[in-house]
C-alpha cells in the first residue's frame, strides 16, 4: 500500500511540471508574435521611420488573451468529455481548437495594425503571416494543452470546486500575467535593443529604434524566439511552475493553519532572495553616476 501523501505529492509535482512547460511555451509564443508591452516598440518603430519585418500581434494584453484560449480549450474539452471521449484526446482536441482561434486572432491583429500604419509606409509581408502563424499556434498549443491539463488535474484529482472552463480561464489569466511580467522583459528590454550596450539602461530617446537586421537577412519573430528561449522563456516557466507548485504543495503537505504559515514563510524567503539579488546586482554593476552627479558608466 502506497502512502497517500506519495500519490498526492506526485500529482502536485505533475501540476508543477505541466505549469513549467506551459509558462515557457506561453512566453515564447508571445515572443514569436510580439505581444503585450514590448510590442509597443514594434508599433512605434514604423512611426519613427524604422519599418521592420517583425510580427505585430496586438491581440490584447496577454492575460485576457490566454484567458480566452484556455477557456475555449477547456470548453471544447469538457464538451468532448461529456460525450465520453478519452480525457487525453479531449484535452488535445480542445487545445487544438483553441490554437486555431489563437492563429485567427493573430492574423487580424497583425494585418489590422499594419494596415493602420499606412502613412508610415510599413508594408504587409504575407510570407511573414504564413511563416509566423503556425509557429505561434504551435507554441500556443503547448501552453494551452498544459494549462488545461493541470486545471483538469486540479479539478478531478485534487478536488477543486470550480468547473473546468472557469478554472482554466483563471489559470490562463494568471499565466498571461506572469508571462507578460517576466519573460517579456527579456524580449522587450534586451532582444529588441541589442544595438545598445548590455546593461546601459535604455534611454527613452532610443524608443522605436529596435533591431531590424538579423544574423542573416532581416530579423523576424522567429529569430527573436530563438534568443528569448535562452533566458526569458525558461524563467517564465520557472515562475508559473513555482506559483502552481508552491501553492498546491503547501495545501497538500500541511493541514489547517500551517498552510498559511508555510505560505508566509515562502513569501519571506522570496523577499530575502530578492534582496540578495538586488545587493549582488548593485555590487556587480556599480552606479551609473558618481556622488557629484558625473557619469561613471
Amino acid at each position: 500500500m502506497v502512502d497517500p501523501i506519495v500519490m498526492d505529492m506526485g500529482i502536485v509535482a505533475l501540476t508543477g511540471a505541466l505549469a513549467t512547460i506551459a509558462g515557457a511555451a506561453e512566453d515564447l509564443e508571445s515572443d514569436v508574435g510580439s505581444q503585450s508591452n514590448p510590442n509597443s516598440q514594434v508599433q512605434l518603430a514604423a512611426q519613427m521611420n524604422f519599418p521592420h519585418r517583425i510580427f505585430n500581434k496586438a491581440i490584447s494584453g496577454e492575460p485576457p488573451a490566454y484567458g480566452l484560449w484556455c477557456a475555449s480549450g477547456a470548453t471544447v474539452a469538457s464538451v468532448l468529455m461529456a460525450k465520453e471521449m478519452s480525457i487525453f484526446f479531449a484535452i488535445a482536441i480542445g487545445s487544438f481548437v483553441a490554437a486555431i482561434i489563437l492563429g485567427l486572432f493573430s492574423v487580424t491583429a497583425h494585418m489590422g495594425r499594419t494596415a493602420s500604419q499606412k502613412r508610415f509606409k510599413q508594408p504587409a509581408y504575407m510570407d511573414m503571416v504564413i511563416g509566423h502563424v503556425p509557429s505561434i499556434m504551435a507554441h500556443g498549443y503547448i501552453a494551452i494543452f498544459c494549462i488545461v491539463a493541470f486545471s483538469y488535474i486540479m479539478d478531478h484529482f485534487m478536488g477543486h470546486p470550480f468547473p473546468l472552463p472557469l478554472l482554466a480561464f483563471l489559470w490562463g489569466v494568471a499565466a498571461g500575467a506572469i508571462g507578460s511580467s517576466t519573460g517579456d522583459v527579456h524580449y522587450g528590454a534586451e532582444r529588441e535593443f541589442q544595438n545598445q550596450p548590455f546593461g546601459c539602461g535604455l534611454n527613452a530617446a532610443f524608443s522605436g529604434n529596435i533591431v531590424r537586421k538579423g544574423e542573416a537577412g532581416l530579423r523576424n519573430g522567429i529569430d527573436n524566439v530563438w534568443a528569448c528561449a535562452k533566458l526569458g522563456g525558461p524563467l517564465t516557466g520557472l515562475a508559473l511552475g513555482m506559483t502552481v507548485f508552491l501553492d498546491n504543495w503547501r495545501t497538500t503537505v500541511f493541514e489547517g493553519m500551517n498552510t498559511i504559515i508555510a505560505g508566509l514563510i515562502i513569501v519571506m524567503i522570496l523577499i530575502l532572495a530578492n534582496r540578495m539579488v538586488e545587493v549582488k546586482a548593485r555590487k556587480a554593476y556599480g552606479p551609473y553616476k558618481d556622488e557629484d552627479g558625473g557619469e561613471v558608466a
Binding site: I178, H186, K280
Partner: peptide, 15 residues
Amino acid sequence: TVTMFVGQLVYVYGV
C-alpha cells in the same frame, strides 16, 4: 512574489 522575483532575475541577468 514569485513573479516579481523572476522578473527581477530577468532585469539583473537578462538586461
